[in-house]
């Protein structure tokens, strides 16, 4: 891509002899909000640390805004990083935390004050200037860490699981906050998460990672509707994934004849795509739970467990009872690998 703002080329990152990220290629566009999504240990933090300059790549290149920064030290890259742990300075007041980087630039005092106050206002922390980080709530500390990075007007802002330490309500609040800040400032952001819904809600594009490699890259809509692999499908909520052999579905537990032939490697269904109550197959209910608008069943079938959601209007099938179900081709997602 020609207008890549952050460009990682053949990047290999290792800890001693252990290669955490082998040969990564990724282009982030200017003003884009990109999410690194993946399970624990897949190399998200490692990738972030390399972009920030805290980890020197074993090989490969990092280009930011047209400059090769592969060997540029972290303090000269003009990048912001919000740590998962916030990493606020406990001995400094909220104001001084935010002003920290500006003071290093040796800006005139009035300017430091003005930019710090503006930064704190952006994240809604006006009035908290004299508090120490320890005297602030988790969400406030989070916003303080964000403000501390934002006032530096970084070319790229990296956020490592910025919302993971917050409770559900604050999480939503911060999500909106992040999105607003991003739209207001137009800053290029890369954020790490292992929460699929967070990535879908926030990102312009999602980079799904597995074992240090990119499994799939695309817009939230693309990833949600068209996961390309079993791993991606599983991450996007297709919880029923089976191999296809002729007109049969196959799992390691058994097989089930479905009566249609799909010329693909695998088929996957979301729980909402599985029909309950009618269909050619039967399964025994082993768990049933109310989930607001629908009821979540786990059925025991010849293929093993099948997760199925039924509309709340349909009568409940008690645990232990048999129920008909369907794995229709219409709601299936075809997977190549």
């Amino acid at each position: 891509m020609s207008n890549a703002f952050v460009s990682l080329t053949d990047l290999t990152l290792s800890y001693g002899q252990t290669v955490a990220v082998p040969d990564l290629n990724l282009d982030v566009l200017e003003g884009e909000l990109i999410a690194l999504l993946g399970p624990s240990g897949c190399g998200k933090t490692t990738t972030m640390r390399a972009i920030a300059g805290l980890l020197t790549p074993t090989s490969g290149r990092i280009v930011i805004d047209g400059l090769d920064v592969t060997r540029t030290p972290a303090n000269k890259r003009g990048i912001g990083l919000v740590f998962q742990s916030y990493a606020l300075f406990p001995h400094l007041s909220a104001f001084e935390n935010v002003a920290f980087g500006l003071r290093l630039l040796k800006l005139p005092n009035a300017q430091v004050r003005a930019r710090t106050e503006a930064g704190m206002a952006t994240v809604g922390l006006t009035g908290f200037e004299t508090r120490k980080p320890a005297e602030m709530s988790g969400g406030q500390q989070q916003r303080l860490a964000l403000a501390r990075s934002l006032v530096m007007e970084p070319k790229v802002l990296l956020l490592d699981e910025p919302l993971s330490n917050l409770d559900a309500r604050l999480r939503l609040e911060m999500r909106n906050e992040l999105q607003r800040v991003q739209k207001d400032t137009g800053i290029t952001m890369v954020f790490v998460t292992h929460d699929q819904s967070e990535a879908l809600a926030l990102a312009d594009r999602i980079v799904l990672m597995k074992d240090g490699k990119i499994e799939q890259l695309g817009t939230p809509a693309e990833l949600y509707a068209k996961p390309a692999t079993a791993f991606a499908a599983d991450f996007m909520g297709f919880e029923n994934i089976f191999r296809v052999e002729g007109s049969e579905l196959v799992s390691h537990l058994g097989r089930l004849s479905v009566g249609y032939e799909a010329k693909v490697h695998m088929l996957a269904w979301r729980p909402s795509g599985v029909g309950v109550g009618t269909g050619p197959h039967t399964g025994r209910v082993i768990s049933s739970s109310f989930a607001g608008g629908h009821r979540e069943y786990v059925l025991n079938s010849p293929l093993g467990q099948i997760k199925a959601d039924a509309p709340i209007e349909t009568p409940e099938v008690p645990i232990g009872h048999e129920v008909a179900f369907d794995l229709p081709m219409a709601t299936a997602r075809s997977l190549a690998a």
Binding site: A74, N75, A87, F100, L105, R148
Partner: peptide
Amino acid sequence: LRADMEEAAVILGCTRLQAFTKV
């Protein structure tokens, strides 16, 4: 004292030595 505090200081523009003395 968590090591990431120093890293935060470095990202904000400190040299390693400044991170040590300031943080």
